[in-house]
Design a binder for these strands. Structure first.
Lengths: 209, 209
DNA sequence: ACGCGACCTGTCCTTGTGGACAATGGCGGC
DNA sequence: GCCGCCATTGTCCACAAGGACAGGTCGCGT
């Protein structure tokens, strides 16, 4: 099922444009940001744009006039080949309705377009979960109970300390046991959670893919 | 287009269940939270649940065992007839993959289910835009890529790799430089960001206090 | 031309980490 | 009583990480 609405593909990158052609039955291609003007005036809404397609030296697309003047009336899916939380937030705050990877699976892009065409917002899993964590300072433990599930009580404690960056000695000290014991617990934790080291453990515990 | 995957409808409210029946070709209905157990064990993933369907006096669904034990393996769309930011955040943090109004248009619900079935997260426009504004205003510059500001371009790259848990050799390999150089960059990063080691760096980069 | 900063590389060296062998005592289920 | 799981501690060892010296090139601005 392809997007029923007319779609504007906005990127100077020919390869990307070719790839995106599958997003709609008959997409229109533009390479200049000014294409947004004519698109809006033609009464259309749906746009997919590659933020990273222009020289890094240039000012971000969303700060330019053509964007500012039209974003409110359009449904813009902003994409980047090197996604970055900061960039995504900026684009969304500047009126974009979605943000994801330029080379995301074509089905994902299509889904994102359908979502923003329906008036909703689209934010990729990574950025969204990051946002949730940022806003919600309180319940870090409730939802993360899943990583702790296979662990014993003691292992949980050790893992928790280790995930905050404490050294083995510090953990041993805090729990009143030997460093050797901490190592033993951590070994078990690594095995049960299928991680290689304490850094991977920290990422898992704090919900980073 | 209805959801191809089997769907579990979880609510004690008969009217709501009837309404939701259109979400899938042959949905399964359950009224007790324990239905999550059997659903997961049957190898299914997709669930839509009404958070508000139970007595207000009862503890929130997401704090109960049946939820905690199964949320990680399921794709749960939580809904509420009286949506509330706090509730939504709590549910999402407890492992729900989406949050919206119980009586949202059936097409919207269907779209939300498709999205979470695809492994993404779904947050309605209202809550999401509030989130964005919150993040934008409350942490304007303590924001996301704040850590990267004092760093040079190369240091940023190295720091980014290191924060994902890659070893010095792996980073060197990825960037086409020597391990020694990676160490040099990391030393500069540690100094500039005032952190002791790569784990603290990872925590900083991923926004853990 | 000179200084400065970014980037890159080299050789020690100390310490932390994690794995590979162990062992001991307690406690609950069959 | 035996078996399995948990918690605890021991030694030895290979290796990664990070600090402390060192050095080099390149480009850019004064």
């Amino acid at each position: 099922m392809s997007t029923p609405q007319p779609l504007l593909i906005l990127t100077p990158d020919d390869l990307l444009a070719e790839r995106w052609r599958a997003l709609s039955s008959s997409p229109i291609r533009a390479t200049e940001l000014s294409g947004l003007d004519t698109w809006r005036k033609a009464g259309h809404r749906l746009v997919v744009v590659d933020l990273g397609g222009y020289p890094p030296a240039a000012p971000p697309l969303w700060t330019q006039d053509a964007w500012q003047n039209n974003a409110a009336d359009l449904a813009i899916l902003a994409t980047s080949s090197r996604p970055d939380d900061e960039e995504g937030l900026a684009a969304l705050n500047a009126g974009a309705c979605g943000y994801c990877h330029s080379h995301a699976p074509i089905d994902t892009l299509r889904q994102a377009l359908e979502v923003i065409a329906g008036g909703e917002l689209w934010v990729g899993r990574a950025l969204l979960s990051r946002l949730l964590r940022l806003v919600d300072s309180r319940l870090p433990r409730a939802g993360l109970a899943d990583w702790a599930r296979p662990l014993t009580e003691r292992e949980r404690e050790v893992a928790h300390h280790a995930a905050l960056g404490e050294s083995n000695v510090a953990i041993a000290d805090a729990l009143g046991i030997t460093e050797r014991t901490v190592k033993a617990h951590l070994k078990a934790v690594f095995e049960k959670l299928q991680v290689a080291d304490r850094l991977q453990l920290a990422l898992r515990v704090h919900g980073v893919r």
